[in-house]
Every structure is written in structure tokens, then in C-alpha cells.
């Protein structure tokens, strides 16, 4: 046992002020003061418009006068064939979501396996996602016209039977819009899934390979279950995107035509708000859109909660 060690405390260090009751409460309120401007902004930008839209959905405007009309707007909505067409078209476009998910995951798995130049391929696939929707709409409107570049090419290859009126035919216009949506959203899916796959530990895949699993079995039974959370997140995000963010594509590509055949919910909201000056009806349609999106968000939250429990 060695000799005792004595240390000398440097008494010049300033001790913290003893806590005083008044000073403590003033100090606790400062964080709220600092976040107050942001809360006010969020309130003005998010909460106020939301409350206003919900409120407006119970009012009707006629000859410039606004009066309370209860559920009349909602009743008119569900009796309006154009609204029902728009609603069903938006729901039909949800079929794009599994297509984008499957194709994006397939491409991501191919890139994950270390294909040479995979970063360049990932970039090429991602480019459509960052092009403005208006530019995409204008480009595809020329591409998909009856005598557009696509049909000219098809006719040149003696594939006349495939040269359809992609945006002028009521029966196939929605498929065309779906195709454009798949093309634009694919890149985002590839990037998200690739990032998720790259974060996985390689050991499990290698162990499966050593045990004799084929590539398909490894992907299906080892890799995909680990990225399930990402897939669920992507599915819900894409569903919300399709339900509530197709307006720029539809507006530029088809204006909702021909004859409302490609009208979607957000286009309907815009039309009644800005073209027909019917804020009550458009607010009611916006509330319906909000409820549908809310259901999707609720599903996602539930899935995440279940995953948390696991």
C-alpha cells in the first residue's frame, strides 16, 4: 500500500450559482419562447388552412354570398358523377403502387448484388424522379399523342396495332397516366430500397449461400424479410402520393379528359376551387381526400407499431 495521495483543488473555479426559485421558472420557459415563432408558423401554414378547409366544407357560396349549408356539399359531392369518376380513378391509380414497389425492389436487388456500374444505373433510374412534373407532363403529352413519337416508332416497326391513342382514348388514358407515374416514381423506390439493402449485414446472406440457398431463396427468405419495414413505409408513402399528388401530371397530360375519363380527386378539388369558384364543394372534396389519406397513414402507423412489438 503506497502513501496517501493528496490533491489540491483549484479554488479559483467559479462554482455555479445556487438555484433560486424565481430564476428556475424563468429559465424553464425560455425553450418555449424560442420555439414560439416556429409554432406560430406551423399553425399558420398547416393548422389554420386545415381548419379553414374543414369549416368551408360546410358552407356554400352563391352570387358572392356565403351561407351555412351543413352536409349539403357532401351530399352534392356523392351525387355528382364527375366526383365519383374522379374518386374511382384515384383509387384505380393505386394499382400503380404495387407495380412500382415490385419493379423498384427487383432493380434494387440487382444493384445490391454489386452489378458493375451500379451507382451509375441507380442515378439513371433516379433522374425521372427529380424532373419537374410539368416537364414530364408536357414531354409525355407529345410522346403519347395519336401521332406522337411513340406511335410513329411503333408504326415504323410495323406494330400499328399497338399505336393506340394513349391519351385521347377514354378506355386507356388512365393506364397511360399510370405508366407515367410508374416511370417517375420508380427511381425513388430504387434509391430507398437500395439504401435499405446496403444497410443489411452481409453475413446472413453469405451464411445462406454457404448453406446452399439459391439467389432467389436468399432474397426471398433472408433479405426481403429484413427490409419489410422499408417496404411498408414505401407502400404507404406511394399510396398517399398517388391519391393526393397526381394533379400536375393529369392537368398537363390530359386536363382530366377526354370527357373526365382521367379526372382525379385533386384535379376535381382544383377545378371547383379555382375554375368554378365553388369553395364549399371543393373544400368538401378536399376533406374526403384528407380522410382517405388519413386512413392510409393510420394503416402505416399500425404496421409500424406491430413491427415495434416484434
Amino acid at each position: 500500500m503506497g502513501p496517501a495521495v493528496h490533491t489540491t483543488v483549484d479554488r479559483t473555479i467559479v462554482a455555479p450559482s445556487p438555484p433560486v426559485k424565481g430564476r428556475r421558472s424563468r429559465g424553464d420557459s425560455w425553450p418555449y419562447v424560442f420555439i414560439l415563432p416556429m409554432v406560430v408558423c406551423l399553425g399558420l401554414v398547416f393548422a389554420y388552412p386545415l381548419i379553414t378547409v374543414i369549416r368551408n366544407s360546410f358552407y356554400s357560396t352563391s352570387m358572392g354570398e356565403t351561407t351555412f349549408s351543413g352536409l349539403e356539399n357532401y351530399r352534392s359531392l356523392f351525387q355528382d358523377p364527375v366526383f365519383m369518376t374522379s374518386l374511382f380513378n384515384s383509387l384505380k391509380l393505386l394499382a400503380v403502387v404495387p407495380v412500382v414497389t415490385v419493379v423498384a425492389m427487383t432493380i434494387a436487388l440487382m444493384l445490391y448484388e454489386g452489378t458493375k456500374g451500379w451507382r451509375a444505373y441507380r442515378l439513371m433510374v433516379f433522374v425521372p424522379y427529380i424532373i419537374p412534373a410539368t416537364a414530364i407532363g408536357i414531354s409525355f403529352s407529345y410522346l403519347l399523342q395519336q401521332n406522337g413519337i411513340l406511335n410513329i416508332t411503333l408504326r415504323g416497326l410495323s406494330l400499328d396495332f399497338l399505336a393506340l391513342d394513349w391519351i385521347g382514348n377514354s378506355n386507356i388514358v388512365l393506364f397511360s397516366i399510370g405508366g407515367v407515374l410508374v416511370w417517375t416514381q420508380l427511381g425513388f423506390g430504387v434509391v430507398v430500397f437500395t439504401a435499405s439493402l446496403l444497410s443489411l449485414p452481409r453475413e446472413l446472406s453469405e451464411a445462406a449461400a454457404i448453406d446452399g440457398a439459391t439467389r432467389w431463396q436468399t432474397n426471398r427468405l433472408v433479405v426481403l424479410p429484413q427490409v419489410r419495414g422499408t417496404v411498408e413505409f414505401f407502400l404507404v408513402l406511394q399510396a398517399i402520393q398517388v391519391i393526393a399528388w397526381t394533379f400536375p401530371y393529369v392537368y398537363v397530360l390530359t386536363h382530366g379528359g377526354p370527357g373526365n375519363a382521367s379526372s382525379v380527386m385533386d384535379l376535381y378539388v382544383w377545378r371547383y376551387a379555382f375554375q368554378y369558384s365553388s369553395p364549399g364543394l371543393s373544400s368538401a372534396a378536399a376533406v374526403v381526400l384528407l380522410l382517405i389519406s388519413g386512413v392510409l397513414i393510420a394503416i402505416y402507423t399500425r404496421l409500424r407499431a406491430k413491427q415495434g412489438e416484434r
Binding site: 364527375v82 385521347g168 377514354s170 378506355n171 379528359g257 377526354p258 370527357g259 375519363a261 375554375q275
Partner: peptide
């Protein structure tokens, strides 16, 4: 004008009515 004369005629020209 917008919903009837224009849009319905558009559907007619598209062959859907």
C-alpha cells in the same frame, strides 16, 4: 359551358359517348 358543351363533346370526339 365547361362541364356540358365542352366536356361532353370531348367525350363524343373521344368515341366514349
Amino acid at each position: 359551358d365547361d362541364q356540358g358543351l365542352r366536356t361532353v363533346a370531348q367525350a363524343l370526339l373521344a368515341g366514349s359517348t
